[in-house]
């Protein structure tokens, strides 16, 4: 069972108390964008084997949306953080880099891999 800590109320909530909200950090392309950008914004999603960033809502709890970084293969949770952000906090990225060297997800990736390129 997936257990996430809500960053707002600090409760360790298990899956049945939460609602999955799909992929995190989507960048909106609205009026004025090209058809392709709008299509990608609507339909193209990551489906990684490994590190993933997701939105969750503490439905049966404080009711707030938050983000979670976890691994889709081992169900390991790297951390949760508030939704008022456009990218994962550095400490969570560092933690993932330590555990999954060479990870990458959309425009985010392992710090050491970035240095190498």
């Amino acid at each position: 069972m997936l257990i996430l800590t809500c960053p707002y109320c600090g409760a360790t909530a298990e899956e049945t108390e939460l609602q999955a909200g799909g992929e995190a950090h989507l960048k909106r392309f609205g009026p004025g964008s090209s058809d392709e950008e709008f299509h990608d914004y609507l339909f193209v999603r990551e489906n990684p084997k490994g590190v993933h960033f997701e939105r969750w809502r503490h439905t049966n709890g404080c009711g707030k949306w938050f983000h979670a970084a976890r691994c889709t293969t081992s169900l390991e949770v790297f951390g949760t953080y508030p939704a008022q952000t456009t990218e994962p906090p550095q400490d969570i990225q560092d933690k993932i880099s330590k555990k999954r060297p060479g990870w990458s997800w959309r425009e985010f990736s392992c710090a050491s891999a970035k240095d190498a390129s």
């Binding site: 409760a11 909530a13 108390e17 049966n60 709890g61």
Partner: peptide, 10 residues
């Protein structure tokens, strides 16, 4: 204090 679910309801 805790908000949670009671079986199927909030």
């Amino acid at each position: 204090f805790r908000r949670s679910r009671l079986a199927q309801v909030a």
